[in-house]
Design a protein around this nucleic acid. Structure first.
Lengths: 93, 93, 93, 93
DNA sequence: GCTTGGGGCGTTCGAC
DNA sequence: GTCGAACGCCCCAAGC
């Protein structure tokens, strides 16, 4: 281990990790502030923020559901395929 | 109001708001995934993720306290300045 | 305060609360074991447990989504009503 | 396979499984709501809910440890019994 | 201040 | 048996 390190902990590596995370957190914070601004602006234009949030939430869930249905479909297809070729060994897959 | 809008809701404006927010949300999501990657990588290098989170939390708290001290200092400085010039009115601020 | 209580804490009441919660927790645990049994039985009958879980999950989410759409509808109706009668005061509601 | 089933999946059986699970889930949900009620009521009576949860957690842990000691004790007893009758074969257990 | 939404954590289940 | 992934629970913070 290098330098004045007496702890057995890779200080440089640790420091890099912490800083990278903190940089990302700052970027996220900035984006959240931008969102806040948009909501404020929308409110100023007469929109109901509560409803805007609800709309966003539901649209997000719709997307999620669509994704999940797709994975379910995949599961079914896999199940059917396996059922159709019961003799097939795992390694053959 | 423009176009086929019969609801009293400014559809175009609404759509723009929703899209701007959703774009920001996607960016946030990407950043969170990047964070996840970093934690995973750190874990792979033998770091304890839980401890890393603890470190980040403490550093954030420290930063917060430093900010608060600064705000308080500003407050004091402002109070002193105002006391020194009692003729100055609040509205002028 | 009654009896040998010297702590200022209502021991009897506390004891009752704890016991009621623990009874409920036991019932929940029993139900979870029953679920496990059913899955095992299903597996024994040739069903793919993974898919069963996925189906259950999606059905649950469908229900959730339906509920949420209803609340969204309520929100819209409220918003429209408020917009239509802007002079109405809160207390009148 | 019965009825209009052309998929190779035992539809009736599947339906029964799903419904049994969903019934159990509803019961669990109801019990969790009952718990919530109790916590709310306790809060209304001046109890600190967070502390109550802590108490419950500790008691559960204690119970767990007691169970483990008992299991360990059984293990010892079994070992002693087997040692005392070395002719007895494992399969006979 | 109360309530609702988001994030973190521990647990459980399935895959390898 | 170990691994990672998914789920529910709990706490905290922001919004009303």
């Amino acid at each position: 281990m290098s330098g004045s390190d007496v702890t057995g902990i890779a200080g440089d590596q640790l420091r890099t990790i912490i800083e990278r995370i903190e940089t990302i957190d700052e970027e996220i914070k900035a984006l959240n502030e931008a969102k806040k601004e948009i909501f404020l602006e929308a409110k100023g234009n007469g929109f109901d923020v509560k409803i805007l949030r609800e709309v966003l939430r539901i649209r997000k869930q719709d997307q999620k559901e669509r994704d999940e249905r797709e994975t379910l479909l995949d599961l079914y297809l896999t199940a059917i395929t396996n059922a159709a070729t019961p003799g097939a060994k795992k390694k053959a897959a």
